[in-house]
Nucleic acid binder design. Structure first.
Lengths: 203, 203
DNA sequence: AATTGATTAAAACAAGTGTTTAAATCAATT
DNA sequence: AATTGATTTAAACACTTGTTTTAATCAATT
């Protein structure tokens, strides 16, 4: 018996990089194994299929992010003082940015694909669905004048705003604009924007 | 000589539908011509390549939308009364929704791909780039305390929030939630959200 | 009715796709 | 040293991809 994990780890990292660069749909297994220095069959040996590989690639990153999200939310709710909208948006968004800060760049680009290629990532998003409902409850508690539908909408807007800035090569923000800003600055900007949006009058 | 336009029109409509349903990257030319009742070679005869077809598909819709955007912006600036943030966000977002309202559903799904598959749409987005700078100036005029970079960021957030709700089958909003809301309701919600976000304190 | 030029059609092209098979290789245990 | 079971490899599988070619078809003009 042999527990190398060595090749499968290489494949996961290579897949992250190629997915981030070229997208999931446009990526062939051969492009992955070439970068990983492995054989095509290794993917099916270690993961079973392309789809299962995609699940594995995202899963190991989503798990810790959502755990930190829940930890922050729990901490907020444990405290006696009333929760502010900025705190809640922070609990939802900051874990992504903090996770990206301590991971290789490709992980950020990988996550840009999460919302931009639903074809492939739908089962992944659906799997981590409970956390959205958990935050929805929290948002409705902070902004009780909003209907459930309104909260849901605004959370979706928020995720859209987050998704679009992750993409390392999105045409809307060119390289200079993006890289001039530190991750921390970007985080504070997006929190300000979305906290204001979430708190907008229900009318 | 013959000016049928008939087949190329069929191809454009079929392409819209299949792009909306399955994404651009995942769509083969054969899937398009099958739905259009045409031959594979017809695409290359009428458009030249898959890439050129994609350009043509988007171009005929983007043009009128951006024209209406500019018309609204010009009207606002022509008026003597100071422009409000809601008015400006409305001028930017409403033309898309109004255009979708008078087009077949597939056009909405098609536009969801515009920001979610930059691989294919980058040249298109870059081509219609001037209008973004035009609106950036307007936003900076309405919110003079914001830096150019901040305005750019917030406009990007806004486009992200818009892009994510266009997708007809995005996992975040399930069918009931989406269809329960009329287009007009959705528009007013997203305008409120983004106007508040754009107007958030610069700190 | 014949000719012209635009349009369509079927077939083939070379290259790339995810997946499977069967043999080779490896490290560790007997 | 031989055996075992996990891992890797090269090759082939059947199928799809965008594009090109060549011949057929069409409507209109001569």
């Amino acid at each position: 018996m042999q527990n190398d994990q060595h090749t499968s780890e290489n494949i996961l990292c290579a897949a992250e990089e190629v997915f981030a660069d070229n997208g999931i749909a446009a990526t062939s297994l051969r492009a992955i194994v070439k970068k990983a220095g492995a054989n095509v069959a290794a993917i099916h040996y270690h993961f079973g299929s392309k789809e299962a590989l995609i699940r594995a690639v995202f899963h190991r990153h989503i798990e810790p992010i959502n755990n930190e999200r829940l930890a922050l939310l729990n901490a907020l709710e444990a405290d006696t003082s009333p929760i502010t909208m900025e705190q809640l948006v922070h609990a939802f968004l900051a874990p992504m940015f903090h996770y990206f800060a301590r991971q290789p760049q490709r992980v950020r680009g990988l996550f840009a694909r999460l919302h931009s290629e639903p074809q492939w990532t739908r089962p992944i998003l659906q799997q981590h669905h409970k956390i959205l409902e958990r935050f929805q409850q929290a948002f409705m508690h902070v902004a009780p004048e909003l209907s459930a539908g309104q909260v849901r909408f605004r959370m979706t807007f928020m995720m859209g705003s987050m998704g679009i800035i992750l993409s390392p090569n999105h045409p809307l923000l060119n390289g200079e604009q993006r890289e001039a800003q530190t991750m921390e600055k970007m985080l504070s900007e997006i929190i300000k924007f979305n906290a204001a949006g979430m708190a907008a009058q229900a009318k």
